Structures are given as C-alpha cells and as structure tokens.
Computed example of a mutant assay.
Amino acid sequence: MLKLELIELADLVHPEQLVDAIIQQNPGIELPIPIEELARLAGITKIEPLESVGFEGTLIANAEKSAGAIFYSSRSPRPRQRFTIGHELGHFLLPWHRQTTFNCTAEDIGSRANKDWEIQANQFAAELLIPQKLLKPRLHKFQDPELDHVLTLAEEFGTSVTMTAHRLAEQSDYPCAFVFSKDNQVRYSVKSAHFAEQLCVWKGNSLPAGSPSRQQTSSHDEWHELDSTWWLKERRGGEFPEMVYEQTLCQEDGYKITLLAYE
C-alpha cells in the first residue's frame, strides 16, 4: 500500500531529494510508478485529460498548496501524459514553486525548457518515473548500454523511449551518448559523464556521411563499427578512440535515436 508522509517532504527543495524521500517511504513500490495515486496522496483531488492545442499540462492549486487539480493533454501518448502529470506534481511539491497556477507548453515539458522552475519540474518527473535507486541496479545488471536496454526499461517503467534514453545516459557508468535526429538532421545529443570525447556534429548538422545511422531502416540491435572521426572531434594528446560503435533506432516520421559507444 502506497503512503506519502508530506511532513517528511516539507524541507526538501531539490527534485532528487523529494523523490528519494518518496521512494524511501515506499520501498516495495511497483512498476510502472503509480504516478496518479502518488499525486492523489499528495493532495491532488482531480487528474483529468483535457482537449487543448495550446498546452501540455496545467496545475491549479489553492494558496496553501494543500489541494490542487492536474490537467494533461488528451492528444499525447500515454508515456507523455504520465510525464506531464509528474511535471505538474513537481510544481505542486517543490516549495519555491509558489504560483498556484502553472500552464505548461510542450516546450516547457521537454528538453527545450529554459525557465528554472520548468527545468526543475522536468527533473522531478524524470526522477520519479525512473528513480535512480531502481534504475542503477538494472544498469549494473545490463552492463554495456544497448538500445535494447532502453526499450526494455521504457516498457518496465512506462516511459517514452526518448526520456528513458536520457535517464540511461545520466546514470550510466559507461562512455555512451545518444544522438536524437529527424530526417537525418541532428536535433540534440546527451552524453554520460564517462563520455569524455566531444562530438563533431551539433544541432542542425546532418548525420555523418559515413554513418549507417543515415539509412532509412535499420535493426536497432545491430552494432556498426566505424572510424571515430565520423562522430568525434579529433584532439591532440592522450589516448583517442580509434573506433566508435553505433546502434540506431528508426522511429516514426523520420525520427531516430543513435547510441554511440567506444572502448
């Protein structure tokens, strides 16, 4: 049975601290994380989809932040809706998010967020939906990162493949990077802390001409080996990887996720 002792969360100001306390209160929590039940225990009395073009999520709370309502876009896929609910719950629980109403766009609830409170709410949602304490043992079991691991974790945690790839990069103990692209043009990339090299492709660049990631179709579990200079910026001094290994997941509408790794 889930529980949420709000008094124990009162003095916690960082998203990771809040989630750690929630998970500690619920050591046997089931997956996917029951985000709506946790929100109700926190004081959210209404969680409903809403038909809207101009917003992704909304929080309406009373002045004391003791009760509130969350609305999310009915048009979004279920993993996106779960993330939106987590995002708005972050606004509700984070103590310096003092507004009583938050109207969040798709840009706010995503990698392009540029307001501090939106970034923090995204951090809270990501941490709550894939808690570090539950993710780390799974990554240790998997060892070397693979796209299959991303798909497995996304299914287990009820999250999007994109968000799951972000979390794997954040928590991986191996040098890996994910490059997100559309129509063979780089949108952005994320790297693990152990990926010490600089990529030589940036937002707006085409995927490297020598990379199999440019193919229209691919098997996401197939590894390709190629000269590292197709992906990595050359440097002087120290050891520089000779080869880079890549896997690519082709998604709908020209979207792709490419995983990079090196020895």
Rank of each mutant, 00 (worst) to 15 (best):
F71A: 15
G54I: 10
S111E: 11
K3E: 12
Y72L: 05
A121R: 10
G57P: 11
R80I: 14
R112C: 04
K133Y: 00
A125Q: 02
I33M: 12
L89Q: 12
L6D: 00
G43L: 01
G254N: 10
C176K: 11
V244T: 15
C104I: 03
K3Q: 13
V179I: 15
T100G: 06
Q81A: 11
P27F: 08
I85A: 07
K46V: 08
V53D: 02
T100M: 09
L6N: 09
D183N: 15
L129K: 00
L38R: 02
M243K: 14
A10E: 12
R187P: 00
C176N: 14
S189K: 06
D221Q: 13
E48N: 08
H140C: 05
A165T: 01
S228L: 05
Q215W: 01
L50R: 15
E36T: 13
G254K: 07
L4A: 09
L18P: 08
P79L: 03
E8Y: 05
T164I: 01
L31H: 04
E48T: 14
S181H: 02
K65T: 02
L134G: 04
L151S: 03
I109P: 09
K115Y: 12
E146Q: 15
R75S: 14
D253C: 01
E225K: 15
K182F: 00
P208K: 03
W96L: 14
N114A: 13
Q198C: 08
R112D: 07
I85E: 06
E146K: 15
A21H: 06
E88Q: 10
V186Y: 01
S192M: 06
I119Y: 01
T84Y: 05
K203A: 13
F55G: 02
F83D: 05
P32C: 09
N122T: 04
L128P: 01
I119D: 03
L168M: 15
V190I: 15
E239P: 03
T159F: 03
D253N: 09
Y255I: 02
D173C: 00
S111Y: 08
D173A: 12
G237R: 15
K65E: 08
Q17Y: 13
L41T: 09
I44F: 02
M1H: 09
C250E: 00
E36S: 13
